[in-house]
């Protein structure tokens, strides 16, 4: 398994676990006009710290490959994954906005919907990277 694929597995697992924890931790019943920024800040700080740890461990255990830039096949896989995850993000944001527009309610749920779209899109990016790196580009 190449360094890029190991990295995608690690980061994908991180996004899945932290994303699920965020969904379980969130109080979805709260539907007011305040953006609860500190609740999401905990999530982002945890993701940043754990990302540094995962990338650090991967870099130490794969010194040779970690220093090299992505090769031509990996660059295409990463680019395609970014393209498709961008579509996932777009659909998520549009759905969140439609739900907010149709059902009304507080801004907090719109904000949470957009954050959830970001998390799903980021997870999708790593999943697509693994798919394209394994199946061919």
């Amino acid at each position: 398994m190449s360094f890029r694929e190991k990295s995608a597995w690690g980061m994908g697992a991180l996004m899945l676990v932290t994303g699920l924890l965020w969904v379980l931790h969130m109080d979805w019943a709260v539907n007011d006009d305040h953006v609860h920024i500190w609740e999401i800040a905990h999530f982002f700080i945890a993701v940043i710290i754990l990302s540094i740890i995962i990338q650090g461990v991967l870099a130490v255990t794969n010194r040779g490959e970690a220093r090299k830039p992505a090769d031509e096949r990996e660059r295409v896989a990463i680019w395609r994954a970014g393209h498709w995850s961008g579509s996932v993000l777009g659909v998520g944001v549009i759905l969140s906005t439609l739900v907010y527009g149709l059902h009304g309610g507080g801004v907090s749920n719109l904000f949470n919907g957009v954050v959830a779209s970001l998390i799903v899109a980021q997870f999708a990016q790593y999943a697509f990277q693994i798919f394209f790196l394994r199946r061919g580009v």
Partner: peptide
């Protein structure tokens, strides 16, 4: 040639067509 071993494997298996340079 400056690629990863996985790319050589993908080329040999016909899953990836290398660039003209490669």
């Amino acid at each position: 040639i400056g690629v990863t071993r996985q790319t050589v494997i993908a080329i040999e298996q016909g899953k990836y067509s290398p660039s003209l340079e490669s």
